[in-house]
Design a protein around this nucleic acid. Structure first.
Lengths: 246, 246
DNA sequence: AAGATCATTTATTGATCACAATATGAGATC
DNA sequence: GATCTCATATTGTGATCAATAAATGATCTT
């Protein structure tokens, strides 16, 4: 039935089905998560062919993914047409977090009105894992569980409009977030999460929103305090070589 | 040095330079504007090849553009991989406009603090042209000048974060907006714009924000009131055949 | 005559190709 | 020894191709 085109003895090629039709989806989710969790650094240029080689595909799906990430303001294109992770200045960083306060505060308010026991238990579990990651100073999982905690709350708001916007923001500050956690003086804590959890448990929308806003504001201040030390340029895994709980 | 691969006598091929390197930019801006101004209807499927033929290019640049518009939630993809203009239900419409109030209210507040005489005169001019379009019941230019008025305000806020988010929202409700204006009972007015202009002239950020929010809320209510009559299915220019002040 | 099945057509998707522009590096010159 | 220049290599862009899957229409059956 299925006849391989003659290409000599292609024995050593991948005999597995290339999982057609959904390659770009895989690449996209991987890159999205990677951006939020610090797999790519601000200023890093994304080479189409290198990434494609890393993913083991043709440049085509990667092109589509980078295209979409540029549209989401997660990446920016250089004059030469290449794309790179944007380097955020202090003013853009505060802009970003001011909008975060509005959007994520609104999402939290909505979520508080739709709390379920399942949501509470899930958030409690995620927060516990986050605390473990903090204890171990595991940056990747720290960011990962923090992101999952926040997004679980926002997901509960059940707004098809808010979520994509919030995601776009997280994709933008993700790389900078990672950088900041590299600084030894950077405080790591999830104390606000306890307040948020308590407020959600009570269905207190105002308090929950307040907790989120405080969490965001604290993070912003910490980020800005280390924004001066932008000079951090450490060697880094160029390709998609992440090892977080994926 | 440069050797053309042998392909017979390709004399009758296009001798003109195909304007290489930035085709997708043109396509993108055209489609963006077209979505905001009603060139495409909710539910309309965007055929890659048809659009490409309309633009006189290969499907390639169009693919990239559609990709980006999907990433911006301006278009959605069907199960078959095609993309189409989303059909907004009442609940999503109110979500959309609730977020609009926050984001555009914030942008207006920021803009009010950076008002310049040039901005005022530009807004005054745009509003005049909008009134003319309303007078002539010219839907395309009506939407176009309304959009330009709002975006000129937001642009003055000078926020690289807010603008893309606001644009994403406008791309989403643009097609529905056009539909609603087709309904004879739909009220057309720009009375709020006068208030906004006055508030901006005074540098009164609170009043300006209030004006924008009122404008948005009014529009939302009008849209929702005609949301029941979703059945409007009129024959329409399929390709990129717009004739607004481009 | 209406509905279901099957073949045809058309759609996107991933891969490959060709070209142009940019970035990179070596070499020569001052 | 530093700098400018030019050749090389790499990159993105647009076009084309092969293959899969969905949508469409016609034919057959009930």
């Amino acid at each position: 039935m299925r006849i391989d085109k003659v290409e000599g003895a292609n024995g050593d090629k991948d005999a597995v089905k290339p999982a057609r039709g959904h390659v770009h989806e895989h690449v996209l989710s991987y890159m999205r998560r990677g951006l939020m969790v610090g797999a790519f650094l601000p200023g890093q240029v994304m080479s189409l062919r290198k990434l494609a080689a890393g993913f083991g595909t043709s440049p085509m799906p990667v092109r589509e993914v980078l295209s979409r990430l540029v549209a989401a303001n997660a990446l920016e294109e250089t004059k030469g047409g290449s794309v790179r992770v944007p380097r955020l200045g202090p003013e853009k960083l505060s802009d970003l977090f001011a909008v975060r306060e509005m959007l994520e505060g609104m999402a939290t308010e909505l979520a508080a009105k739709k709390v379920t026991p399942a949501l509470i238990s899930q958030l409690t579990s995620l927060n516990k894992q986050l605390l473990v990651a903090i204890e171990k100073r595991d940056i990747l999982n720290c960011l990962s569980y923090n992101q999952k905690f926040h997004f679980t709350v926002y997901e509960a708001a059940d707004s098809e409009v808010l979520m994509p916007l919030i995601e776009s923001l997280w994709l933008q500050f993700g790389p900078t977030m990672y950088m900041s956690l590299l600084i030894p003086s950077m405080p790591w804590n999830a104390s606000d999460h306890e307040d948020i959890l308590a407020a959600l448990k009570d269905g207190n929308a105002t308090a929950a929103k307040k907790g989120i806003v405080h969490d965001i504001r604290t993070t912003c201040k910490a980020l800005l305090s280390v924004a001066g030390s932008q000079g951090i340029e450490l060697p880094f895994a160029q390709g998609p070589e992440l090892q977080f709980d994926y």
